[in-house]
Design a protein around this nucleic acid. Structure first.
Length: 374
DNA sequence: AAACTGCGCAACCGCAAACGC
DNA sequence: TGCGTTTGCGGTTGCGCAGTT
């Protein structure tokens, strides 16, 4: 016995919404709030299931939705966040005010993904597709896959931790349930922000502060994980002390400090930002699955995060335009599918990493304090 | 002008997490 | 603590429209 679809009930309408239905839904929510979605359709006089109503509201009718073409800034943000978060559209959407996860997902699938693919970039890993071809060592392929896999796990774990803390914050910080027009859904854009960036902060803060010269440890190491976990737990503990505001400021400040440390310490500390990391053949010697520690991974110059930044710029600069001539290439460039890509040569590596972190820092700084970012 | 093709996007589906009793 | 219900999320589908043949 499988679970029966929510719209199985006879008489429930499916398919496109009519203006009349929209009007009914809008009017009801404006007056009563959505309350229980399951109960809403009958109360609002709609022959729809609650799920359909919720989707219609969150993806289309909500008054705080911005429609229309995505700006260059938004495109850049999506690409960067996708490199960081993967297909976690809701998480990405929280950093793009007034855009829904569905809209972002659609835009990615119909525009950005294709653009990346055309340029020879794997839209999943944000790495050049011929990376595999360039590498003749199976071991390297394995290691790359392992690293990517590991990064995904770590990313998922961080997301889970962030969610936990967010829940704690929400519970301790949110006013009692509102039964008027300002429902929880209506409040969504104003809700306390997700903490995935806080986690990044913790990550980078811990990473930068705990990794001095010669301290080569993967960001997925237990040390860093411990610090992140502590940060998360400390963060959660603040709810009891009513210091959420201060805590938030502290976290933001630490995040920025972490990135700044990372930037200033680039010559000493190779940065390996999760799955955006783009290990070279030499940089990856072995990935230890048992303890999640990557050995030797940081002993080499790793042209990593800069790739996203450079690539994003390239994408935006080239969107819909002819490819640049390789002759005006930056330093050493690699022509992939006709598109010269700055590959982060050894000479430009540190500068490129700096660019990457600056870009993330800009992203953080450019978010208003009340934005979903913080 | 009709048929075909590709694209964009709203909406659906099903799983899993969160919630509440 | 267990279990049923509700909600959120990400993947996928299908329809309508525009461009092309």
């Amino acid at each position: 016995m499988g679970r029966s679809p929510c719209c199985d009930k006879v008489g429930l309408k499916k398919g496109p919404w009519t203006p009349e239905e929209d009007q009914k839904l809008l009017a009801y929510i404006e007056e009563h709030g959505h309350g229980s979605w399951r109960a809403l359709p009958s109360k609002a006089g709609l022959q729809r299931c609650g799920k359909s109503c919720r989707l219609r509201w969150t993806n289309y009718l909500r008054p705080d939705i911005k429609r229309g073409k995505f700006s260059l800034q938004e495109e850049q943000t999506i690409i960067q966040l996708h490199a960081l978060l993967g297909n976690r559209w809701s998480a990405i959407a929280t950093h793009l005010p007034k855009r829904t996860d569905n809209e972002i997902k659609n835009y990615w699938n119909t525009h950005l993904k294709k653009r990346l693919t055309k340029m020879g970039i794997d839209p999943v890993t944000h790495k050049p597709k011929n990376d595999a071809i360039l590498s003749s060592h199976d071991g390297h392929l394995k290691s790359t896959a392992n690293l990517s896999h590991m990064a995904q796990w770590e990313s998922a774990r961080l997301e889970a931790e962030a969610r936990l803390v967010r829940q704690s914050k929400l519970r301790s910080n949110s006013p009692p349930p509102i039964t008027t027009t300002t429902t929880t859904t209506l409040n969504k854009p104003m809700a306390p922000p997700p903490l995935c960036v806080d986690i990044l902060k913790a990550w980078n803060g811990a990473w930068a502060s705990n990794n001095g010269i010669g301290h080569h440890e993967s960001p997925t190491s237990t040390t860093v994980s411990y610090n992140i976990t502590n940060a998360v737990e400390n963060n959660a503990s603040f709810k009891e002390e009513g210091n959420i505001e201060d805590d938030g400021k502290r976290l933001v400040s630490e995040f920025k400090q972490g990135i700044e440390n990372a930037i200033s310490g680039l010559s000493d500390v190779p940065i390996l930002p999760m799955e955006i990391a783009w290990p070279t053949q030499e940089s990856l010697i072995r990935v230890d699955h048992d303890d999640d520690i990557t050995e030797n991974i940081n002993d080499q110059h790793v042209p990593s995060g800069n790739f996203v930044e450079n690539f994003t710029d390239l994408l935006l600069n080239n969107s819909g335009k002819a490819d640049r001539s390789p002759s005006d290439g930056d330093q050493e460039s690699c022509d992939i599918a006709g598109a010269p890509l700055p590959m982060g040569s050894a000479s430009g590596y540190f500068e490129d990493n700096k660019n990457y972190w600056n870009s993330i820092l800009n992203l953080v700084n450019s978010s208003p304090s009340h934005s979903p970012m913080f």
